[in-house]
Write a protein that binds this DNA or RNA. Structure first.
Lengths: 226, 226
DNA sequence: AACGAGTGTTAACTAGTGTTAACCGACTTA
DNA sequence: TAAGTCGGTTAACACTAGTTAACACTCGTT
């Protein structure tokens, strides 16, 4: 699932570093292990990792200083600090340097992995717009846009929602009352007629590709064929 | 320093709850203690706390369900989950529900307080110093500046506030009435028209990156796509 | 005190969106 | 096949939002 996410681990205690490295590798991270702050910076520059796991206390350059330098180049990269037992003050300082999370030693691998994933998710979620393929169209639900070659059709919110539900059930029946309840709140007569209008509008916009059509199933709902 | 921060504590075990409550009160938190999920929701709605500390396993409504409901109304409020010893799976679920942190029972008060403060700091930091990335723009809320490569656009206070709330909900709908109440104090007709003007101004400034746009959702609000 | 720059509000006009109505056609059942 | 129902299409309408410019207010400078 998360194959080949590059991760920089800076930990000066060799055996602990080795264990963490190996554990992360079994979870499909590509781990670069630095034994001090300076080495970590070099690796960061050459390998361009997506996540940093930094020990706070390290020879040559501590984790906070390192984080500060890296953040100048990359203000959004997720950083997890590993702090010694009673480093309360340091922890707060870590956040002030823009680090996203921290973990107290000793920690469980389970916990570290959860935190890495939650930070990655947070960043990743922002960019993952699904591009939905409908025949020769590409439909972007978030942007409410329907692409056909180089033509762009801007959909309204309602059109977009309706088309989205149709694509979710593509080639199967999408229930009338389901849509009505979901988009209009209830399935009374007037909303039903309103929906018909939107189906009509979508059909007009989908006409450019004749292999795509919205078929009515009398009494039940609609089927998007594509 | 942090005098009078309102905190909602939901913990069904009365004696544990009491101890935590008292400890937090000595640290200048104003603590509202709920004994189950439903009571917690009521308190949330009436007291409007700034931080939530939620036990996961509670009668009537569990912590995750509760958090989900509250996040619908307030997407940014910091939440700390208290989880039983070996609830690893639940923890993951907790993050998926948008909770910001968790703590395994038994926990030290020290640790809880650090986490509360660090979450509060994080929000504070974000508002004051963090560089917010919007497509190819970098937005500094405190400086009210919008950077695009080497161009700098100076935003007014209103523009900056509005853009900040949009970025907090990026790719989701930001409620019209929420902004109006938050920035203008009430959602009457004239303020609504005023807001439209600011949306228009922001759109003009965000035009430099075509992948960024503010989409209207008729009757509900706006979505910042980036 | 007068001025001007900057900011936010109000107003006027324009554009877009969703609902309702009217009319029509297609399918179902008796 | 006639009656009844359901859905299709188009256009009118009401309402919401977008845009631009004028206006009013604040604040610092002269």
């Amino acid at each position: 699932m998360n194959s080949n996410i590059k991760l920089l681990l800076a930990e000066d205690e060799p055996s602990l570093g080795q264990i963490v490295k190996e554990s992360l590798e079994t979870r499909n991270f590509e781990v670069f292990h630095a034994l001090n702050g300076e080495e970590a910076l070099e690796i960061y520059l050459s390998k361009n990792p997506e996540v940093l796991v930094l020990d706070v206390m390290m020879p040559k350059k501590d984790g906070f200083t390192l984080a500060k330098e890296i953040r100048e180049k990359n203000p959004t990269i997720p950083i997890i600090f590993l702090t010694a037992k009673s480093q309360t003050k340091d922890v707060i300082e870590g956040f002030q340097h823009g680090g996203n999370d921290y973990l107290k030693k000793p920690f469980s691998m389970e916990e570290l992995i959860i935190r890495i994933h939650s930070l990655l998710d947070r960043i990743h979620l922002k960019k993952s717009f699904e591009k939905i393929v409908i025949g020769n169209f590409i439909f972007n639900y978030e942007k409410q846009k329907l692409y056909f070659n180089d033509q762009i059709d801007i959909l309204t919110h309602r059109e977009s929602e309706l088309l989205f539900y149709l694509t979710e059930k593509r080639n199967k029946i999408l229930d009338r009352t389901f849509i009505l309840n979901k988009l209009w709140g209830n399935d009374d007569f007037f909303n039903a007629r309103s929906m018909d209008v939107f189906i009509s509008k979508l059909r007009k916009k989908l006409k450019k590709d004749t292999s795509v059509e919205i078929i009515n199933v009398r009494g039940f709902g609609y089927k998007l064929i594509c």
